[in-house]
Every structure is written in structure tokens, then in C-alpha cells.
Design a protein around this nucleic acid. Structure first.
Length: 569
RNA sequence: GCGCCCGUGGUGAAAGGGAUAUCACGCAGGCCUCCGGAGCCUGAAGUCGGGGUUCGAAUCCCUGCGGGCGCACCA
């Protein structure tokens, strides 16, 4: 597709006042394939030519006459658009060859040139169980890190654990008062969670508990041995539990730099802020006035001397810049923290860090129950681990029913079950709130990962039967594909590089996810209309090249979503 | 009170200011002597209301309504 765009870009640049790059920018895909395959909208020329766009389109098409290019065969005007029709044989050969040559790297690019991109994602709060709510940050962040890596960036996954803060005071108080060693050993995270929920229930009757919790958190900040011991224990037990889920999802972080990691840098940050003269004392607390910028002011240090979330985030941002000299720094964190990040980035700017503009908050909507928001405090939560396990169970049942002879049912069930959950989250626009629904979470029909995986498995089935006879490149075979379903599929395959790029630029893996649905759909149409194995020699070879290219596109795409493409299911 | 986000067929979603608004679930019907029917084909049904900007608005602006989120001692 890029080659076609470049060709059209050069062609139109030579006939208009525009540069090739400008033309390429303007090119779009027509809404209806019968209009053409690549459209040049003539609105941009209306001013300089002082003519109506439809007239310009008409003139351009007449100028081109019956001309044809390498990859296109005709150009016709339709309203204000000049529409190019691809030359199916040349275009098909071109696309298939590119996929063939690039293989696993088809769709990848090197726009990043090795620049560092730290991505802050997942970041659960210690001592709270890993709920479905955490899946969003986890899978969106993971997918973005895979996508940016494919574009030549050096991504750095950072799990910014919530391992510091007043909740530890609460936990210590609870554990000291009511804690039970054997219960803790048996099921650490759930037990800690139980204590946490209980604390919030009891605090309603006894508000003094809150003071006690703050007191213990201050002790922790001051390095009190007893407090630190508790903290270490709670933290490690939680980490062991998260490990399980990350293993299931195939996620590895480069760093587990939780909030506690920045403790020794906080003094320095506060000193810096004071030196810059942007901080003020107010009722014993240290504040930065952001009113002039239309934002609520922030507090860096409480009157009791304890620091806050934003103080640590400030330290973390500066640390990341010093350590990684990043090209881009992403924060995959819920939309409810949008204001916090606006404040954070503004403070960085006020500190004179030009790189503050390279910090990006990637927000997403929250997951809700029908009855309302999930609340960890109230104890209303669904564990992610449970969702994943049930999804795998469901997939196993379906495999048992539809494909009982499958040799390795377990890995297929994992691929499909885990894929369904991930895809369910990745395929929708991240900014919208999601209502959690077991039925939808465990759905394998329609626009789901299973649909894409099924196409992939079918392809493998065909390729297995075809044997090795056709596993070589052949120019003339690749030029034979001119049936409608073949051409449409080829055109779809040609879009992968654009889609990966758009996913990165918009921080939206959903663009790639939806595209893969299109690929699978076009493949299924092709499959139902164009027999492969029973075709005669050269056409069979050509179709096998197309089938193989489709396999490659699906595999490359799913890989960037962190979803396994099974050979059988 | 102030600020931010979201309103698209019955339901869930897509649509870089552009052409006749695209899918899926569900519903009604059809397709396996044929490469895997977790599939394919056909059909009914939609841009929250009102103003504006523009040659052109689901998209941008204003306003109303509905829903969500946030706003100095939580994270």
C-alpha cells in the first residue's frame, strides 16, 4: 500500500502544486470498493486553482487520460475525488512479495530508531487483590509496549506498584490488632484484603483507627524497624501472587519500581521545587499553586511531614528521564486520574523540564458492574485470576465438544480462553467505560479473538495438507489472483503497516484489533469462494501464497496484542 | 458549585471534518456428497434534543437532557 501511495504521490505532485509527501498525507481509502481503491480528495487544491473540487477531479482524470501506472490501472473522478483503481496482478504480486520477504517483520518499521520508551502499566496496589479492573492497564500497556517495540523503539515495562502510602498504615494496624499468622500463610492476598475491607468497616464506628493508621505509615516512612518488617512481608506475599497472573498472560516487566523505590529521592525533589521558587507553605503543608494555569493546586507534603502520591510520581518522572533519556514516557492509567497527570506534567513544565511534553497519559474508562462501580474497599470485586481461569475452562469445554480429537487441548484452551479476555478488552476504544458481564467476557462468537484464531487454525490446516511442494516464492503464481475475494483480501493484508502505526500514534491497540477482525472476515469470504487445494497447479500455488500471507498477517498482528495464534483449536 | 469524559439499530461497538454511516450479538430465513459450520450468504432495524461553523458534521463550537469521573492532607 505504501508503494502505491508513493507512486500516486509522485504522479500527482508532478501535476499539482503539492509535494509528494503532502499528497500522500491526503490520500484516503474510499468507503466503497466500487469507487476505487485509493482516493485523492481535491479540496486542498480548490483555493490555489480557484475552482470547485469536482471540476479539479475531472480535469485531473482527463489529464491522466488512459494512462496507467505500475500498481494502478485507471484513475477516474467521482465528485470531488480522483479515485485510483489498483492493477490487481501487479498489486497482488507486490503485496504478497513484501509479506513473503519480511515474514515476522511484516508491518514493523524503524521509526523509533532505538529511542527509549518507558511504559508505566498494570501497577496494582499491594495488599489488594488483582481484580478485573486491573486488566485494562495491564493488557493495553503490554500491547502498546509490543507495538512500540515493533516500530523500533526500545520499550521499558515498568510496574509502578502501589507499594507505599497510608494503606500500609491501615494494614499494619489491622494486622497488629487482629492478624493471624496461619491465615496469612494460607492465602496471603485474600487475607490481607479481608483485613483491608474489615478496617474500612470498623473505621466508620471508630474514626480513631484512621489516626492510628496514619501514625503507623509515618513510622514506616521514618524507617521504623517493626513497620518496615511488616511492609516487606506484605509486599513480597502480594508480588508472589501477581507473578502467577503475569505468567499466565505472558507478561514480563523490566522493572518493578513501585512507589517505594522513589522514597530516597523525595527530599531532593522537594528541594528542587523549593529552589525553583514554585512552592509555598500553607497551613504547614507544602503546596504548588496551579491556579494560574486553571488547575487545582497540588500538595507535595502534608502538615505531618508525610509525602503524597504526586510527590512520588514527580520523583519517578525525573528518575525515568535521568535513567532512560526517553523519547516518550507513557502512563497507562485510568481516566479518573486525568487531573492528576495534568497537574504532574504541569509541575514538570514549571520546573523547566522541556521533556515534560514527551510524557503522555494514556487513559482508559473503568470497568463497572451493572450495580455500580467496583469498590475494593467494600469488598466487591471479581478476581482477574478467576476470570482467566473460567475463560480457559469455557474454551476447554467448547474444544471438547467441537474438536474432541485435538492432540493438545490444553494449550489450545489457554490460547483461546486467554485470548478472549484480552481481546475483549483491547478491541474496544479504551476511553469508554465497560460494564463487566460474565457472558460477554466468556463469549467466543462474533467479533472475538476466537474468530481470528479460528481463521488462523484453518489456514494451518490448509498449509499442512498442501505439503512442501508449494513453499517457494513464484512471481507468476502471485500475479494470478484477480477474483474479487482474492483482491479484497490482498488489499486488506496491505494495510497492516498503516494499522500498526495508527495504533501507536493514537495509543490505541483497538485499531489493530479491529483490523484483524477485518482480515479474518475477508479470509473467510475468500475461503468460501475460492477453493485452494483443488485448484489447478499455478493458481493453487498463487492461492497458497495468499493463504500463507494471511497467516503471516494474523500471526504478526495477534503477537502485538499478546494473543497466541494457535495452529489447531 | 466548578472542571473533564461518554451518548450511534433492541444490545455491544466502528467510522483520522468528507462520498450511500460500517460490524457483531440477538431476531427472521438460507448454505456442509466440497480445503475445519467456532464458518458463509440474505433480511428487518440506528447517529439523544435544539441551535451554529463549513461547500460538507456521528465527528468541531454553543446549549439542553441522560450517564460516568474528578476537584489540598487517599492513590
Amino acid at each position: 500500500m505504501q508503494k502505491l501511495k508513493e507512486e500516486v504521490g509522485r504522479l500527482l505532485a508532478s501535476r499539482t502544486s503539492l509535494e509528494p509527501a503532502e499528497v500522500i498525507q491526503l490520500l484516503e481509502i474510499p468507503p466503497e470498493p466500487t469507487y476505487g481503491d485509493l482516493a485523492f480528495p481535491c479540496f486542498a487544491l480548490a483555493k490555489s486553482r480557484k475552482k470547485a473540487p469536482p471540476l479539479i477531479a475531472k480535469e485531473l482524470s482527463e489529464e491522466l487520460g488512459g494512462e496507467e501506472g505500475l500498481l494502478w490501472e485507471k484513475a477516474v473522478s467521482r465528485g470531488p475525488y480522483l479515485n485510483f483503481f489498483i492493477a490487481p496482478r501487479a498489486f497482488g504480486r507486490e503485496v504478497l512479495q513484501e509479506v513473503w520477504d519480511k515474514g515476522d517483520k511484516y508491518g514493523h518499521a524503524d521509526i523509533g530508531r532505538g529511542g527509549n520508551v518507558p511504559i508505566d502499566y498494570s501497577s496494582p496496589n499491594i495488599a489488594k487483590p488483582f481484580g478485573v479492573g486491573h486488566i485494562r492497564s495491564t493488557v493495553i500497556g503490554h500491547s502498546l509496549s509490543l507495538i512500540y517495540s515493533a516500530l523500533g523503539y526500545n520499550t521499558i515495562g515498568i510496574n509502578h506498584l502501589g507499594d507505599w502510602g497510608t494503606q500500609f498504615g491501615k494494614l499494619i494496624v489491622s494486622y497488629k490488632r487482629w492478624g493471624d499468622d496461619s491465615e496469612l500463610k494460607e492465602d496471603p492476598v485474600n487475607y490481607l484484603y479481608k483485613l483491608y475491607v474489615q478496617f474500612h468497616k470498623l473505621v466508620e464506628e471508630d474514626p480513631a483507627l484512621d489516626d492510628e493508621a496514619r501514625y503507623w505509615f509515618r513510622k514506616l516512612e521514618n524507617g521504623d524497624e517493626e513497620a518496615v518488617d511488616y511492609w516487606n512481608r506484605f509486599r513480597q506475599l502480594s508480588l508472589d501472587n501477581y507473578e502467577l497472573i503475569y505468567n499466565m498472560l505472558g507478561i514480563e516487566f523490566d522493572y518493578y519500581h513501585g512507589e517505594s523505590h522513589y522514597n530516597q529521592m523525595l527530599e531532593e525533589v522537594i528541594k528542587l521545587v523549593q529552589e525553583k521558587g514554585i512552592a509555598t507553605e500553607s497551613e504547614g503543608a507544602l503546596m504548588i499553586d496551579l491556579e494560574p494555569y486553571g488547575l487545582p493546586s497540588v500538595m507535595l507534603r502534608k502538615k505531618d511531614g508525610a509525602t503524597l502520591y504526586i510527590t512520588r510520581d514527580l520523583a519517578a518522572a525525573i528518575y525515568r528521564y535521568k535513567t532512560f533519556n526517553f523519547a516518550l514516557s507513557l502512563y497507562v492509567v485510568g481516566a479518573e486520574q486525568t487531573l492528576h497527570f495534568q497537574q504532574l506534567f504541569k509541575v514538570l513544565e514549571l520546573l523547566g523540564f522541556e521533556w515534560s511534553s514527551r510524557c503522555v497519559h494514556v487513559p482508559f474508562g473503568l470497568i463497572r458492574f451493572k450495580e455500580g462501580r467496583m469498590s475494593t474497599r467494600a469488598g466487591k470485586i471479581i478476581l482477574l485470576e478467576e476470570v482467566l481461569k473460567r475463560s480457559i475452562d469455557m474454551a476447554r469445554e467448547i474444544i471438547e465438544e467441537k474438536n474432541p480429537d485435538l492432540p493438545d487441548k490444553e494449550s489450545a484452551a489457554r490460547a483461546v480462553g486467554l485470548g478472549a479476555v484480552r481481546f475483549g478488552d483491547l478491541s474496544n476504544d479504551r476511553i469508554k467505560n465497560i460494564e463487566f458481564d460474565w457472558e460477554k467476557a466468556l463469549d467466543f462468537s462474533g467479533e472475538t479473538a476466537a474468530y481470528i484464531q479460528y481463521a488462523h487454525a484453518r489456514i494451518f490446516s490448509i498449509l499442512r495438507k498442501a505439503g512442501t511442494e508449494y513453499t517457494r516464492w513464484d512471481d507468476s503464481a502471485a500475479s494470478l489472483l484477480i477474483k474479487e475475494e482474492e483482491v479484497t483480501l490482498i488489499k486488506t493484508l496491505a494495510l497492516l503497516p498503516d494499522k500498526i502505526l495508527a495504533s501507536a500514534e493514537n495509543y490505541r491497540p483497538s485499531i489493530l484489533a479491529r483490523y484483524l477482525i477485518d482480515v479474518a472476515r475477508e479470509f473467510n469470504r475468500f475461503y468460501h469462494n475460492c477453493p485452494v487445494l483443488s485448484s489447478e497447479d499455478e493458481l493453487k500455488h498463487g492461492r497458497l501464497l495468499l493463504v500463507n500471507a494471511t497467516r503471516q498477517v494474523i500471526a504478526n498482528g495477534l503477537a502485538l496484542l499478546g494473543i497466541i495464534a494457535p495452529e489447531e483449536m
